[in-house]
Simulated scan of single mutants.
Amino acid sequence: MTELFLALLGAALVNNLFLMLPAGADALRARRVRLLGPASALLILFATPLAWLLQSLLLEPLELSYLRLFVLMPLLAPLAWLSSKVLARLRPQLPQDGLWPLLLGNGAALAAMLLASQPAASFALALALGLGGGLGFWLALALFTDLLGRIEQADIPAPFKGAPVMLICAGLMGLAFLGFNGLGFNGFGLNGLGAP
């Protein structure tokens, strides 16, 4: 039992698959980000107005707002497919292999859909959230990819190589983006931490 617990703890914290495999094993990371960034931006742009429309025209009139998550989550599959097909039409030279599963698991799109379907949101705010959120996700992805490229070329002490330095960099990027908190209009009735 202890061995199972240590393996679970090691996979979750020490050898985190999300942090280790895409960064170290993906030699085509720059090409993938050139594809994943715009595809995610399109997904978020398509998802937020649709979430607002579903909430306003279907769930609220039928008093089924408590089912919002169960209605919005299955919509990610066709929207991910649609955004990959639109991107394939716009940029046919980029390879599309392996894109659909990455878009399907995009938590930012689901979060944007949930924010856009808040009662305080209007259609214009949902559209602005979709456009700004998609472009922001693309920017953060591009910045983190550039940062990972710089890390791979830097002379880093052995204890910090791999996941530790990536977590430190992710934390510093989070603090940098937190510096923009309070800029602009927050029309969703949420404070900077996401709580009402």
Score class of each variant (00 low, 15 high):
191 N>C: 11
76 L>P: 08
45 L>T: 06
63 E>I: 01
182 G>S: 05
77 A>R: 04
145 T>P: 08
175 L>Y: 04
31 R>P: 01
69 L>C: 10
10 G>F: 07
18 F>H: 12
61 P>H: 03
106 N>I: 14
46 F>I: 08
180 F>N: 05
8 L>M: 11
98 G>T: 11
10 G>L: 10
62 L>E: 00
130 G>A: 04
32 R>Y: 02
64 L>N: 06
7 A>S: 13
17 L>E: 12
54 L>R: 07
29 R>V: 13
40 S>M: 11
41 A>P: 06
26 D>G: 09
18 F>Q: 12
181 N>S: 15
126 A>R: 00
42 L>F: 07
43 L>T: 06
65 S>T: 15
146 D>H: 13
47 A>I: 09
99 L>P: 04
25 A>C: 10
69 L>I: 15
127 L>T: 05
162 G>Y: 00
186 N>M: 06
155 D>T: 14
88 A>I: 01
136 G>P: 14
72 L>P: 13
49 P>G: 03
79 L>E: 01
49 P>R: 02
97 D>V: 13
135 L>S: 07
81 W>V: 10
20 M>F: 12
100 W>Q: 11
96 Q>P: 11
163 A>G: 03
10 G>C: 12
100 W>H: 11
9 L>C: 08
116 A>G: 12
58 L>V: 15
156 I>G: 08
105 G>Q: 10
161 K>A: 01
5 F>M: 14
185 F>R: 14
190 L>C: 08
93 Q>F: 02
117 S>L: 08
67 L>E: 10
154 A>G: 05
8 L>V: 10
192 G>Q: 12
104 L>D: 05
111 A>E: 10
148 L>K: 15
4 L>E: 08
137 F>H: 12
34 R>A: 00
184 G>I: 07
96 Q>W: 01
109 A>P: 14
191 N>S: 14
179 G>L: 04
195 A>C: 13
46 F>D: 04
121 A>T: 02
24 G>H: 08
85 K>G: 06
192 G>E: 09
185 F>I: 12
2 T>L: 06
82 L>R: 07
17 L>D: 11
152 E>K: 15
114 L>A: 07
34 R>G: 02
163 A>V: 15
130 G>N: 02
59 L>R: 07
7 A>M: 11
95 P>C: 00
52 W>Y: 02
10 G>I: 09
128 A>L: 04
75 L>G: 03
57 L>F: 02
168 I>G: 12
60 E>P: 05
145 T>Y: 02
71 V>R: 10
86 V>I: 13
